[in-house]
Amino acid sequence: METTQSATATQPAGTSAARDGQHIILLESVHKWFGKLHVLRGINLAIRPGEVVVVAGPSGSGKSTMIRCINRLERHNRGRVVVDGIELSDDMRNVDAVRSEVGMVFQSFNLFPHLTALQNVGLAPLQVRRWPRTKAERAAMELLERVGIPEKAHAYPGQLSGGQQQRVAIARALAMNPKIMLFDEPTSALDPEMIQEVLDVMLGLAREHGMTMIVVTHEMGFAREVANRMVFMDEGVIVEEGPPEHFFTNPQHERTKLFLSKILHQ
C-alpha cells in the first residue's frame, strides 16, 4: 500500500473490525471506482467517539467520496466500512440503520425548497421516527434555536441567506439525533461574511455536545481550533494524518507541504 501514516495515526485492528469496540467509524482498505476512474485507492481510517477529524486535500482527491461512503451515498467496491458496529453492505436494513445514526451536511445545502425551515428540520422525525406533529415541531424549533435562527422557522429556503440555509441544514441533520455528523465542504458555497456563523455552529457542536465529526473543509482556522486530527488526502489515498499542531507546523510529506503552502498563503 502506498499510504504512509504518521506515528500518531490509529491503525485499524486487523480483521476484527466489525467487533472493534473502540472505534465508531472504521474504514479498512476501502476502494472505489467510478467506471474506470479509481477514486479511492485503499483508505484506512479509524475514528473514536467524540473525535473531530478534518479532511483536507486538493479537489479530486477523493475526500467527498470517502465521507459519502460512510453513509452509503456512494457504494464502496472493495474493503469494509463499519459504522458504530454496523457493517455497510448490501443489507438494506444496515444501510437504513447507519443513515439514521449519521447526519450529513452538504456543500450546496440541499434544503427542500417547498418546505419551510421548520418543516425541513421536522421532516425526518415526523416521517422516519413517526413522531406526532406537535412533538416533531417542538423538537425542530429547539434545533432552530440551537443554530440561532428560531425567527426564520416559517421562512422558505429561498428567503434565507446562504449562511442561514446552511444552519437550517445542520439543524435538519441533527433532528435524527445522530451519533456522527459528516460535513462535505459546508462553507465553500458561502459568501465570506457568512462562513463564520456556520463555523460557530459547528464549533459549538464539537465542544458542547462532543459530537463525532468528519469535516471536509479548507477552513484551516477551524481545523486548528477544533480538530483532534487532520487527514490529508491526495489521489485517492490518505497521504498524512496527525494532530493539527504536528500537521501544520511539521508536515512530513512534500505533497502536504505544497498543499499547505498554497492554502495558507491565500
Binding site: D96, R99, M104, F106, N110, L111, A124, V128, A169, R172
Partner: peptide, 17 residues
Amino acid sequence: SRGQMEAARSLGLTHGQ
C-alpha cells in the same frame, strides 16, 4: 437536483418517501 434525493435519503427516508 440529485442532491434533494441524497439529502432525503441521508435523513433516513426510504426511496419511496
